[in-house]
Each structure stands twice: as C-alpha cells, then as structure tokens.
Design a protein around this nucleic acid. Sequence first.
DNA 1: GTCTATACTCTGATAGAC
DNA 2: GTCTATCAGAGTATAGAC
Lengths: 207, 207
Amino acid sequence: MEDEAPAERPLTRIQQKNRQTILAAALEVFSQHGFRGATLDQIAEVAGLSKPNLLYYFPSKEAIHVELLSTLMDTWLDPLRALDPEGDPVEEILDYVRRKLELSRDYPRESRLFANEILQGAPRVSEVLEVELKSLVDEKAAVLSHWARAGRIADLPPHHLIFSIWALTQHYADFDVQVRAVLGPGHDPYAEADGFLDTLFRKLLAP
Amino acid sequence: MEDEAPAERPLTRIQQKNRQTILAAALEVFSQHGFRGATLDQIAEVAGLSKPNLLYYFPSKEAIHVELLSTLMDTWLDPLRALDPEGDPVEEILDYVRRKLELSRDYPRESRLFANEILQGAPRVSEVLEVELKSLVDEKAAVLSHWARAGRIADLPPHHLIFSIWALTQHYADFDVQVRAVLGPGHDPYAEADGFLDTLFRKLLAP
DNA sequence: GTCTATACTCTGATAGAC
DNA sequence: GTCTATCAGAGTATAGAC
C-alpha cells in the first residue's frame, strides 16, 4: 500500500526530446490563444507530431498547460527572489527591473502565457498567487519599507512599487504588437525601454 | 442599383434592449476567455436568451466581437484625445493618468477585452493600431516633446512615457486578480494606485 | 512509439414551428 | 421575435494496427 504511485521510470532521450518539442509548441499556441482558444490540432502541427502522439506523452490538453505554467512560475519569481536586502537599494531595484525586462525580451511567450492565465481569472494559479507570490512580495516589500525608513530610497507604497515594475516591464512583451505598431519600423523597443526605465526608476527612487 | 444596401430601419426599443443585453453578456465572456475561448452558449446563458435568439440579433459570433471592439476603441482613445497642448503640462498629463485609471476601475472588462485582443496579435484591430492609434500618439508625443524642449517637463522619450501610462493604469484592470491576491483583503487597489501614480508621475515629470 | 480510424462531445449556425 | 430541433464541422480523447 505504500507504493501506490508507480515508480517513475527515467525518460529516454527521445522521450525527453519529444516532451520538450511538445511543450515548446504548446507554449507558442497557448500564449497566443489562451487555454480554451488553443487546440491540440494546432499544437500538434507546430510540434510536427500527430495528435494522438501528443496524448501519448501527456494525458490531456490540460496536463500540458499545467506543466507549462508550473515551470513558468518558478522562472518568473526568480528575479524578485534575487533582490538582496544587503545590497545597494537603488542598484538592487534597478537590477530587478533590468532582469524583469530581460525576461520580457527573451521569453515573451512565457509572459503572454502568464498574462492569459491572469486575464482569465487565474483558475489554475490562484493558489500560487495567494500563497507563494504573496509571501515573497510581502517579504521583499518589507525590505523596501526598511530602505525607505532609512532614507535610502523614496517613501513609496512598496507593493505598488513592485506592481509598477511588473506593469512596465511586462507591457513590452504582452502588448508587443501595439508597441511596435505605435513606434513604427526602425525601433528597438527593448533597448529604448531599458534606458527609459532606468531613468524612470532612478528619478522615482531618489529620496 | 444605387440602393444596394437595405435602408437601415431604426431599431425598436425591445430590439435595442436585447442588443445591449447581448453585448453586455458577450463583453463579460469575451473579456475573460478571449474570442476563441468564448462560446455562444456561455454568452446566451449570461444574457438569459437562447442561442438562436443571439443569432437573430447578430449575424455571427464574430459580428458581436467586432461590434464590441469598435465601440471600445473610441472610448479607449478619448482620454488621450483630451490632452490639451494649451494646458499646464504636468496637470494635463496627470489628468490623463487619472482618466486612464478611472477607465480601468470603471470598465475593467473592456480593458481585458482589449488586452486579450492585443495578446492574440491584434488580428481584428491591427489596422486601427497602425493608423488611428499611431497618428494620435505621434501627435501627442509631439506635444510632450515640445513641453520638454521648453523645459516645462523632464526630457523623456515621449512614446515610452505614454506606454508607461498605459502599462501602469491598465495593469490594475488586466491583472486585477493578481493585484488583489498580493495585497490581500482590506485594500482598495484603485484608491491606492491613484495616489501612487500621482506621486510617480510628478517625480518623473519634474524637469 | 507512432500512426489511422473513430467515438463522442461541443460549437456555430440554420430551419421551421409557434 | 422566440423557441425546439437539428446539421455540419471541429474538438478532445481512445482503440487498435503496425
């Protein structure tokens, strides 16, 4: 009775490769259409596999989505975890902004996958938001408050300061088509954003 | 041959009311699930009408979505249109921020509908973005540049300044569940955001 | 491990009674 | 104007040959 779950056999190389192929294709499709809007047909076509073959590697459409989301959440929170209470306040925050912007630039589909999930009311990650994310943010907000009380950064509501970092960086990934449509050709949105956000947060954080 | 399109009969009161009921229900559903994720069944249930009855008032699912989007786009751009080149620079921009935040607070579903459309690559509004929105933003960006050259606001890339207003205000509507999950109970996100964004943009715009 | 064939459900849209 | 019934196609998932 102790070994109810079957022992997890290590995956062969070809299995690992196919799983990765499927996840990459699913990320592409889910991030554009959301969970319900995406179809296994689309994912199969992007992956270059047959539909039943997808379901040989994953038990269901939802399982693929859950797998994507859970690996995503970790990557997503890493930059905030790295915010060092012992570091220089302004530089620590600016580093965080930079890392977040790099995530938007290098993993825009992950950003949109997450945005889709939140827009839909976070049916699959509300637990993570309310527990893991909340406690992490509360912890780092306390650090920000401490820095503010010490007069090392401006006195701002720490949670909203963090929201502003999320909003400003993720905007460039989630609203990419709008940003590019408005800027017109010949622009590098992320390069420009990098300088702009550096200026913005330096001015904002100055005590 | 000149009157190919049938003369548009004015709608009866009951027709207008039902159309509005359907659009309200569709807004609810589309804004949460996106176009492909939404179903006529869901919309019909929310509207309290039968599915064929929906299609008596609108020729197709897409027609409902297009109707919602086009009325939305006008409302959405109004606050930026109202930015007055003759007014006081900082107060004009802060008024714009306030009006945008009020839109997020009072019309969060419209904000999410738009966000969904952009996330999906703006298949139905890319024309509007590239023409109407771009020319409006270019026009107002010129105003911001003029103010900056006159030393009345800080010298910042005007397009990205406008992006930052969009990102910071829409975040509270589009990521509402995340904001509330992180803040926990007993908070009024929009009231707090109002004060925070006022502070943020006053510091940012100071020359 | 991968494919073809298929079961079964859901979805958008139409026909036709009332 | 509104409903029941229904169609055709798409959707997820499974069975079973190879």
